[in-house]
Design a protein around this nucleic acid. Structure first.
Lengths: 200, 200
DNA sequence: ACGGTAATGACACCGGGTGCCAGAGGGAAG
DNA sequence: CTTCCCTCTGGCACCCGGTGTCATTACCGT
């Protein structure tokens, strides 16, 4: 896990010469100008004034740059689930949390759009992102399993987690394709479809 | 598209020295013995008595070996959809087709298991497979769009296609984890959950 | 035997990713 | 200030997947 930087008060030893965030900034700049595939790790490193080897100490791979600090966000989602009223129907809770989890500050929307454009449209990232989604699904499956009173690896919570992820991705794609749309509204609509078994 | 070999009657020029199928055989042998990641393309090529460069004329990538001839299977799925009675509810049709599409000859089950174990458990393949799933989803979305009277890129058919894929993957994982289970039965159960909005 | 056509494989090259290691930079204790 | 210890750095060599190029090989029909 190269993506950890506890960075507590003062520690012995040399201090880090840059940060994930800074590398992300430099990388996104290059991705915007030349595209993801055409940008090499060497270029990102040079742009940030570090060695190529050092880049791989900040990120496990070039792909991981676009994901920033996703792990912490997931913790936030778990929190959302915990706050759901116990009596709330499973799919209502799920819909609400997915929508809230994906609500972003209006000022951050353009940045979020660029990030998601990369993740959902660059084949290399589409592929790699699957691995990140697994963690997302695990959080959902855990919650669903708790509500259903079954183990998290049972079929139903797993299927639901997979389905919810898929629905969310479809919503994201729809949002990206339509610049005027509101992400939360689209997510809500799609998750409602899911809860209704895509009927009526 | 390296994966094409029309191989009509007689053609001029040198004949292919091996086949996708043969390479697949050799590769699976090595994957079983040393694992996917630990097997290099050089080894596969050497094992099949061809040059490394030639390997990449049979498959676009090492990842693609495990997928065999997936394209043709998709055509079969389209066919299944076409045969659905027009009055059948959308999700019933979908469930039926997904189940039938994944029915395999009992004698081919062990082979299918090994293939799916690779696809669903090796991270590199999990990631890459996402790209293959896109074609699967397109077939589903096309059918759903037709039934719903909306364009294939509308939110609902896309969300449904994504959800169906997810549910199918969950079923596959469940099947892999439980050697005694019947794939079709698991798929049927999972798709039924989907149709019911995961309620009751 | 010959000419056209396709597949082959070697070679060189690119880029992502890793193990290794010497050295730079910094804190704290003497 | 010097010393010890610790961490981060970055160069280097290496592995592997993937690609462009090109001479060569094998097969067809004439």
């Amino acid at each position: 896990m190269a993506n950890q930087t506890p960075e507590l008060p003062v520690r012995p030893g040399r201090r880090r010469s840059t940060s994930q965030h800074e590398l992300e900034r430099v990388a996104f700049e290059l991705f915007a100008r030349q595209g993801f595939d055409a940008t090499t790790v060497d270029e990102i490193a040079r742009g940030a004034g570090i060695g190529r080897r050092t880049f791989f100490r900040y990120f496990d791979s070039k792909n991981d740059v676009v994901w920033g600090s996703f792990g912490e966000h997931l913790e936030r989602m778990r929190e959302h689930f915990r706050r759901c009223p116990p009596g709330q129907p499973l799919l209502d809770a799920l819909r609400t949390v997915v929508v809230e989890f994906n609500r972003v500050d209006p000022e951050d929307v353009p940045w979020h759009r660029r990030r998601m454009e990369l993740i959902l449209r660059v084949p290399a990232l589409q592929a790699h992102s699957t691995l990140r989604y697994a963690d997302w699904r695990a959080v959902v499956a855990e919650f669903a399993a708790g509500r259903l009173g079954v183990p998290p690896d049972a079929l139903k919570p797993q299927a639901l987690a997979y389905a919810a992820l898929g629905v969310a991705l479809a919503a994201y794609e729809h949002w990206l394709a339509d610049p005027g749309s509101d992400l939360c509204a689209v997510l809500d609509a799609a998750m409602t479809d899911l809860a209704r078994g895509f009927g009526s």
